[in-house]
């Protein structure tokens, strides 16, 4: 048993190393060694000005053309695929050794799952407990996306820093809310709710529904990007010595966890309002 888990750990380590090798040449964020006689711990393309660095943070250039038509932002997609791979591996590892008396991994998984299970039951009621897998998955995914920037691999930026990722998550959450409302109420009652006080209010209600998704995604995006820019500016001021570690802990771990939880909680409460 122990050898198997060691094997799994080795596999995960190998994936991390492979990801690091793949990402060489994307951008030179990390550099350890001697530069002009001085020991350099971390050096983000020091020839550029801070303005260019922040512009670079915004853009995350590494586009790949697929079939000559689709353009894929590989530097974001790579990290998302890594997160997905990690989640799938974790799920397989937990599922392979399911027991009545749980092991270590199973305890962790059961703890997170039962927390969200009780949250769903508290918010939308006992009958709607089939919402739990979606809620659980969206939390774990956003959480891992937010904290993956802590792993010091070159080019390992948080995917949620790019607006496209939170926008996609927000659209997905909005579709989930409206689909469950339609399923719960029936399509006639659902459409009738838009003209609720008087028919004149129709456009305002539609805009209000769209603003939910936009505010969800912009909240996540703004928090992560703002934290990243603050870390970058202060690292530049302090020459990358010691202080950025604490800042990374605050912005990566604390803000990342809180924002992931807030995203899930808001999706859940929007759903609870919509199906009421």
């Amino acid at each position: 048993m122990k050898k198997k888990s060691q094997k799994a750990l080795l596999i995960i380590l190998a994936i991390i190393i492979i990801e690091g090798i793949l990402s060489i040449g994307l951008n030179h964020e990390l550099q350890v060694g001697f530069d002009e006689g001085k020991f350099v711990i971390r050096n983000i393309e020091s020839k550029k000005s801070i303005q260019d660095q922040i512009n670079h943070e915004f853009q995350q250039y590494h586009m790949i053309k697929l079939f000559g038509k689709f353009i894929i932002n590989w530097s974001v997609l790579r990290v998302i695929l890594f997160v997905d791979l990690f989640l799938i591996l974790f799920a397989l590892l937990v599922k392979r050794k399911m027991h009545l008396i749980p092991g270590k991994l199973q305890i962790v998984a059961e703890m997170i799952y039962s927390f969200f299970f009780s949250l769903v039951i508290e918010t939308v009621g006992e009958k709607k407990k089939y919402f739990t897998p979606y809620i659980f998955t969206i939390f774990v995914f956003i959480w891992l996306c937010n904290i993956i920037g802590l792993i010091p691999i070159p080019g390992n930026l948080e995917p949620t820093r790019n607006l496209n990722v939170p926008l996609g998550l927000g659209i997905m959450a909005l579709m989930f809310v409206h689909y469950s409302a339609m399923k719960e109420k029936g399509i006639k009652l659902y459409l009738k709710e838009y003209a609720e006080p008087i028919a004149f209010m129709l456009p305002i209600n539609v805009v209000g529904e769209l603003a939910k998704g936009i505010s969800l995604s912009f909240r996540l995006f703004g928090n992560i990007l703002g934290g990243a820019i603050i870390v970058l500016v202060i690292s530049n001021l302090t020459r990358f010595i010691l202080i950025p570690v604490g800042l990374n802990l605050f912005f990566g771990l604390f803000i990342g966890t809180v924002q992931a939880f807030v995203f899930t909680m808001l999706v859940l409460s929007y759903t609870a309002v919509a199906i009421k």
Binding site: R219, Q259, V262, M265
Partner: peptide, 12 residues
């Protein structure tokens, strides 16, 4: 926490 995050959105 949820309420604070909602009221934070204007700042964001």
């Amino acid at each position: 926490l949820v309420g604070q995050a909602v009221s934070e959105s204007t700042g964001i």
